[in-house]
């Protein structure tokens, strides 16, 4: 090749590689995306739960998107305890008022934010939940207080359809 005009050929090389890369990407993407949650999994996005028989202090666990969701009807002591906590004592500061719109009802994804185990109810140093896997303690608002978990247990999107039914999702 002469030294005079390499630009034209280099442009052709670069253009060919670029078109090739786009083509490979277009073929690979469906192969990668097929692993993402499919339509049938996404279709199970909401669950309705009848909570009419729950007494204060009682907690139930329901399955939503394959994950456990804790629904707890809290006692007045538990609510008071959650609301008395100072923000500076929290690893992931969040007011109890923001976590439980109706203070009596705490609805949260029952998955430890560390590595995904299901914490145990009425256990741990803060009278809330305790994760047996790696020792994270949560308070009566489901907020992380001690242990390796980085954040509070997640509050899913939910609403009261009527006074007896909660719709999660």
């Amino acid at each position: 090749m002469s030294d005079k005009k390499p630009e034209r050929r280099e442009f052709l090389f670069t253009a060919s590689y670029a078109v090739g890369a786009v083509g490979v990407g277009a073929v690979v993407w469906p192969l990668i995306d097929q692993m993402n949650p499919d339509a049938s999994v996404k279709a199970l996005a909401s669950t309705e739960v009848d909570v009419s028989t729950m007494e204060p202090g009682k907690s139930i666990t329901v399955l939503w998107r394959g994950k456990p969701v804790f629904i707890k009807r809290r006692t007045s002591e538990e609510i008071a305890e959650a609301r008395a906590v100072k923000m500076e004592d929290l690893k992931d500061p969040q007011k109890d008022e923001d976590r439980a719109k109706n203070p009596e009802w705490l609805v949260m994804v029952g998955v430890c934010t560390h590595l995904g185990c299901v914490p145990l109810n009425d256990k741990g140093d803060y009278n809330g939940w305790f994760c047996p896997c790696h020792g994270s303690h949560y308070d009566t608002s489901g907020r992380i207080r001690k242990g390796p978990a980085p954040t509070n247990m997640e509050i899913p999107k939910y609403e009261f359809v009527n006074s007896n039914t909660i719709k999660i999702g």
Binding site: N36, P37, D38, V41, R65, G66
Partner: peptide
Amino acid sequence: VNWLWGGYSVDNP
């Protein structure tokens, strides 16, 4: 993680 699971938790996929 959701991509690895093919859902929102470890399940059939």
